[in-house]
Design a protein around this nucleic acid. Structure first.
Lengths: 330, 330
DNA sequence: GTCGATGATTGAAACGTTTTAAACTTGGTT
DNA sequence: AACCAAGTTTAAAACGTTTCAATCATCGAC
């Protein structure tokens, strides 16, 4: 079939070898029905012999639109976002599009570097998880279609999210019902909308001791956990803004000999796969990550096709999954 | 600065507005020193006013090489690969390149779809984790630079890997030294080189009861775990080909009331972040994931720049991290 | 035999860059 | 007054596609 070719072979080479014009080759590739069977075969043979692969950049240049979407999140190593990304990937490849996955890591510089990369690539659109930096506004200003994942764009763009206020309330109310009065909220930066919303919801059910940490990962959780232990009037329950934080807190508590749930109840958020497998299986607020990603990608594709388009806001409802970490003492 | 533009603005528009030729605009963008200060300012002003963003596809078309690399792995939701990807992302963005992350999910069709996507995009190169399908050979045949991550290409390409034979031996020997004689090996498909090598290494230390499962994820582990329980002469220790499998096994054992490590010792592989946070903290064979990714990307960039190039094989040594799941009974 | 009609094929333009060689300024030398 | 060098700027070609209007065959019908 294909032979190894170092000098790239173009449509012109194929045309030459098959003894037809380049227009015909293009037709064979894109609308085989418009070309006679005999020539079609001849051209196809030339394509196979030469190992011709059409150039996406030339195609894109001509068409004016690319076959790529991008997804930008704070941290792709967070299993929640990895799942969202996976869902988006499924939806995109079903349409023959590629997905570029990027972690900004809370670094505003990295983030704007990615944004200009996307703009230069003329990506079809961007799936963006809101960050502290005003990236959503940048995309809007540049006229790049985008869907906000896990956040709300207040009408300025489509968005797919989970009702975090409800989620926060679910978690806190559960703890209150188990008899807890002093509840801590371990969170990432409060300028992140997600962290704010969960706090608002939780505040409706209980008064909170807020422990903020710069990064929403396991290390951040460990840090918050040890700070928690030093608190004068130690809370009896902790609600964490995501499962990574909760796992970190759990590690810190364990290291200090504090038992969960006996000494301290713990609730996480996202219900990542590892929550169920944790040292003490973690009660968590489940969000449909994969579906979030699929829906967001679908919305994005729809928007980029349909010029006249009204922004949609899809909000999923979270669900509390109770496991041992929050079970009331007997 | 930028104004919202729907009809894309090209270098020609900028040239017109600044009253210079397009060549000059190109120079302002790419070699500002070659153009007089006064014109440079004028052109820059036009660029800002129009919100001009250069088209990567046109650039790429002209240059013949793109500014993208791709990474293809079985499952990006496996934290190990997510970490590898993160490392690769760091190295690539340091050079101003973008990374396209893709999960093949063991589906040969998806995989070849991605490969043709990469070829059409003329990606600079591909980071590939070896799969059962012969993708590495396809890349070689098409002359696309690639680096095999977590596997060896036997001279046909660069590779970055961890010595899995040693890793397997490390795990099994540890169990043998703890007094175990009947040891099970829970693994993904044995046509995956990784799974084979770990088995070979482990076999050198002990005889193994092999339990194969089609997918290397938590669900696969749960499945293998329950099969394990039904075994006639039940092993006293289990070595899993990765941590996801181990976590799944742990869940199945727990559900059946089998205690770890008292009734059964457990060792995983990769030492993902969640291994330490597991219900019973998991003994695991650590691999430097992030570094693997960084090194692989660096190698790839070097190869794609330097035509005459001898393939390198970098092999890292794994390291056993002992935690409670394999601690001998007192 | 000529006229359309139909179907297959072609030629050329356009997409937005980068690059190279050529053309145009200056201002200083002879 | 003519010439040169250095410093700027420009015109045009090339990259590989797709598309559209135009041409070319072929064939049945008059």
């Amino acid at each position: 079939m294909t032979t190894k070719e170092q000098g790239r072979v173009s449509i012109k080479d194929v045309a030459e070898r098959a003894g037809v014009s380049i227009g015909t080759v293009s037709n064979v590739v894109n609308r085989p029905d418009r070309v006679a069977a005999s020539t079609r075969d001849r051209v196809q043979a030339a394509i196979d012999a030469l190992g011709y692969v059409r150039s996406e950049s030339a195609r894109h240049l001509r068409a004016g639109r690319s076959r790529m979407i991008a997804m930008l999140a704070l941290d792709m190593t967070n299993p929640f976002f990895a799942d969202v990304a996976h869902g988006a990937e499924e939806a995109a490849t079903a349409d023959g599009l590629g997905v570029m996955l990027c972690s900004s890591g809370q670094d505003a510089e990295v983030e704007s570097l990615y944004l200009s990369l996307f703009a230069e690539q003329r990506v079809r659109g961007v799936l963006i998880a809101p960050t502290a930096a005003g990236s959503v506004e940048v995309l809007a200003r540049q006229g790049i279609p985008h869907v906000v994942v896990d956040g709300n764009a207040r009408g300025a763009a489509c968005s797919v999210s989970v009702d975090d206020v409800v989620g926060g309330e679910l978690a806190a109310r559960h703890l209150v019902e188990a008899g807890h009065r002093r509840i801590a909220y371990v969170t990432g930066p409060l300028d992140l909308p997600q962290c704010r919303d969960r706090r608002i919801g939780a505040s409706e059910a209980a008064e909170l001791v807020v422990l903020e940490t710069p990064t929403m990962d396991v290390a951040g959780g460990r840090d918050a956990g040890s700070r928690l232990l030093g608190l004068p009037d130690r809370p009896t329950a902790v609600f964490c803004a995501n499962d990574l934080l909760a796992l970190g807190v759990l590690q810190a508590l364990f290291a200090a000999g504090v038992r969960v749930p006996d000494d301290l109840a713990l609730v996480g958020y996202d219900d990542i796969e590892f929550a169920a497998a944790a040292a003490v299986p973690l009660t968590s607020v489940r969000r449909p990550a994969r579906r979030l990603g699929r829906t967001a990608a679908d919305l994005l594709l729809r928007e980029s096709d349909d010029s006249a388009h009204r922004h949609e806001h899809i909000v999923y409802q979270p669900e509390l999954v109770v496991r041992r970490s929050s079970l009331a003492q007997p």
